[in-house]
Nucleic acid binder design. Structure first.
Length: 199
DNA sequence: CGGCCGATCCACT
DNA sequence: GTGGATCGGCCGA
């Protein structure tokens, strides 16, 4: 089942970040289907969150997509090198988002290895937000993509998220502060990062 | 318009 | 453990 708009437009971005664990993120780029189970996320809570690009109501051409209704992608360039993929949540004018930091590949492994320049799979090659987008062929130019639409044909490029009822009983949930946000003052310590670990 | 810096990654020591 | 890559976005002048 493709996650519907109503999953995303809810108001609790921290709950959505937690619930995205175990869902499957797919991309279809140039006719190649790749996907993985989401295993690490971080919540960014909009204008009151100093770690968010929308902190204090900051609203620019880049961040505009976060001010639209949830269920779209906010993808931006980090360190001049890496595209970072976020899920926009909440209703119009509330700029919440969830950063996807790690996946476990389940579809298109050969293409994923090729894109990452790896010969063999190990469970770290798609651990890290820059590596997730590289593996899935996601580029910051795709910011604004509608995540609720599965492509109808191979020629259509798309990014979407499905609930494949992945069994999480063999995993435990870890909750920690977010990574790389030491500039965020008191918000740097918020428990907004969620990870799955094998038991 | 100039300058600083980042929700990172990898090679190298 | 550390430092360099790399460049668009943002802010202040």
């Amino acid at each position: 089942m493709v996650l519907p708009r109503c999953f995303y437009i809810r108001s609790d971005v921290v709950a959505i970040a937690r619930e995205l664990l175990g869902k499957t993120l797919y991309s279809q780029v140039d006719g190649i289907l790749t996907g993985g189970i989401i295993t690490e996320t971080e919540a960014y809570a909009g204008i009151t969150d100093r770690a968010s690009h929308a902190w204090n109501g900051r609203r620019t051409e880049r961040t505009e997509i976060m001010y639209g209704a949830g269920g779209t992608a906010y993808i931006y360039l980090c360190y001049g090198v890496h595209s970072l993929f976020n899920v926009v949540t909440n209703r119009k004018e509330i700029p919440h988002a969830v950063l996807v930091r790690a996946i476990q590949p389940v579809e298109g492994m050969a293409a994923i290895l090729e894109r990452l320049g790896k010969k063999k799979y190990d469970n770290r090659i798609t651990s890290g937000p820059g590596k997730v987008t590289k593996a899935l062929g996601i580029h910051y130019s795709q910011t604004g993509a509608d995540l609720t639409k599965k492509p109808s044909g191979l020629q259509e490029n798309a990014i979407w998220i499905e609930d494949r009822k992945f069994d999480l009983s063999e995993y435990r949930l870890e909750v920690t502060p977010r990574i790389g946000v030491s500039y965020a003052g008191k918000d740097a310590g918020l428990p907004f990062r969620f990870l799955l670990h094998i038991k």
